[in-house]
Simulated scan of single mutants.
Amino acid sequence: MRKFAVALRRTIGEMNRLVHGFAADEGLHPTDVHALAFVLDHPDTCTPGLLREHLGLTSGAVTACLDRLEKAGHVRRSRAADDRRVVRVHYAPDARGSARAHFLPLAEAAGRANGRFAADELAVVLRYLDALNVELGALRAPRR
């Protein structure tokens, strides 16, 4: 299983390299990119509280992160109609182009890698990744 752990670390390192490149290109912090991905992938409308919990940041740090993302045009914030105290975070549709352009090589590399495997093999890999993400998601992010 050591080879497996090494392969996962290499994958994480390559993904981090791409995230850091996007962050630098956009004038963001790498944590901002993780926040942006969470907003994009969240099944419901995201809130600053959900981001704080997911990233393990303080409220002030999440506000600074959202300020940078909003200034760069990646997100917008709105107030809930039924309770003006509730802030919602939305991925800005017109911001998708810059992310799509930056991460296109990743999508193409994934497509080439996927082409080396049969559909049933990819289903097992996806099942594993889903299980790993559930396990990792259950771990509390350290507070910063």
Rank of each mutant, 00 (worst) to 15 (best):
E53R: 15
F103D: 11
A110W: 12
H102Q: 03
L104A: 15
F38K: 14
E70N: 05
E26C: 15
H90T: 10
S78D: 11
A113K: 03
R88L: 15
D83W: 00
D82I: 10
H29A: 14
D32V: 14
V89K: 03
G60C: 03
L69E: 09
C46F: 08
A64N: 14
T45A: 09
A92R: 09
A109S: 11
R88D: 05
D67C: 05
V75D: 00
D94N: 14
F22P: 12
V87H: 02
S78V: 03
P43D: 09
S78A: 12
L104V: 13
D82A: 09
S59C: 05
S78W: 00
A109Y: 05
V62A: 11
L55P: 13
V89T: 07
T45I: 12
P105E: 01
F22D: 04
A35F: 09
L104P: 02
R100I: 10
T47P: 11
H54W: 05
V75H: 00
A107R: 11
A72M: 01
A37M: 13
A37K: 01
C65L: 15
P48N: 08
G60F: 04
L104H: 08
R112M: 13
L106Y: 10
R77V: 08
D94W: 07
A113D: 10
D82M: 03
A23H: 04
V33M: 03
R85L: 10
A109C: 05
A92S: 06
R52T: 12
H34V: 12
D44F: 15
L106P: 07
G111C: 10
A101H: 07
D44M: 13
L55R: 10
G73P: 02
R112K: 05
F103E: 05
R68K: 00
L28S: 11
L66H: 00
G73D: 00
G73E: 02
R68W: 00
G111N: 08
L57N: 04
G60L: 11
R68M: 07
E70K: 02
D25I: 08
H74N: 13
R77K: 13
E108L: 15
A80N: 11
N114G: 07
R76K: 11
D82R: 11
T31H: 00
L55D: 07
L106K: 00
P30C: 05
T58P: 06
A95C: 12
L57D: 06
V39F: 12
D32L: 06
R79P: 04
S78I: 00
T47S: 15
R100W: 02
G49A: 14
V86I: 14
D82S: 10
R96S: 06
H90Y: 03
G111Q: 12
C65R: 04
E26M: 15
